[in-house]
Design a protein around this nucleic acid. Sequence first.
DNA 1: GTCATTTCGCAACGGTGCGTCTCGTTACTC
DNA 2: GAGTAACGAGACGCACCGTTGCGAAATGAC
Lengths: 192, 192
Amino acid sequence: MVVRPRSEKARQSVLAAMRRALAADGYDAVTIEGLAAEAEVSKQTIYRWWPSKAAILGEALLEGELPTPDLRATDDLATDLRAWFTAMSSRAEDGANTALARALIAVTATDAELGLALNKRLADPIVEQIVARLEVAQRAGQVREDVDAAAVADQFIAVSSYSSLLGRGLDEARVSAVVDVLMRGVGMGSIH
Amino acid sequence: MVVRPRSEKARQSVLAAMRRALAADGYDAVTIEGLAAEAEVSKQTIYRWWPSKAAILGEALLEGELPTPDLRATDDLATDLRAWFTAMSSRAEDGANTALARALIAVTATDAELGLALNKRLADPIVEQIVARLEVAQRAGQVREDVDAAAVADQFIAVSSYSSLLGRGLDEARVSAVVDVLMRGVGMGSIH
DNA sequence: GTCATTTCGCAACGGTGCGTCTCGTTACTC
DNA sequence: GAGTAACGAGACGCACCGTTGCGAAATGAC
């Protein structure tokens, strides 16, 4: 076999052009031809390796390290979650990140299959972190045994997604409100 | 003034065609020309009255009665919220409704301004219902005074939005999990 | 009923991007 | 060094965009 390998340089150039274009103009203003020009790459090269604009976005999302903060595990669940969710929402203040998030939502609303796959790969690690942390708290007796940890984790994701969809970030007060209610919701307190 | 009025028949025909096309092919497969053909209306007639595809969707959403269930006010907040959220999620089992919801998300992810306006008009009445109900519960001593009712209402909306974005409905168990956690979260229970 | 006026359907326009194709060139593997 | 596949450049037909001009139909004013 005499094969010339795929140009990794061209690939990275296209993905970078996609990220730049997203931040500048938004997902559906991006065109393949514009991408090719911006990346200084032939249009055919793009079509050779990606089936669609959405697929390029997918790779850009998976490859570009979506920097999600770590969820620390001290002995105080509330503090851990508050710190994590605060860091999470501060990520959303960077325009490039919100552009990526909005693009993810746009492509998910359009291409359900690819959207599900992307969301799975991006959200699952976060969900797992939260679920694991909640299970630790359950063993420590800080969280009720009958709490559906995945449902709670999903609520954090949902709130984040919805707020970046609407372009309104999560201010400190809102972060506190969400964490407070959810913390009390999973806690051992009884209802009188 | 001798004026021939706008054809209401044509208008309704276009909006109906938009709803049909959304359910059939999804928002970004909809084209103005296809809409015109389907509605048996001239393309010019569409451009005379709507500035964009998104604007047509906006009217279709506002005009078509997005049937949101009422939030009853018995003396049991948990039951009221559970009944309302269950009804809400059952709405999402109708494909036509999820198509509308996904289209709303798609246009919001693309056109932030129009999206915000639409979300405001569609979500605000729901949020107000929930906030009002929570305030009643606060006066009845069932909900803590320091609870941010709007933040809680937003969480319901966010969960609904996110689940219809991903195309996975909210099953009974998930509805229960969300309501349970939020109910305990706003309740008077103390944390030990 | 007639007339003025506006919307209507029809159809064409140039422009943009799509996705495919062909070419000649370049760069990598063997 | 030779063979081969990816590369850049650019053209193709196609779909849809948003705009324009036209004659016909419809409606309110009188």
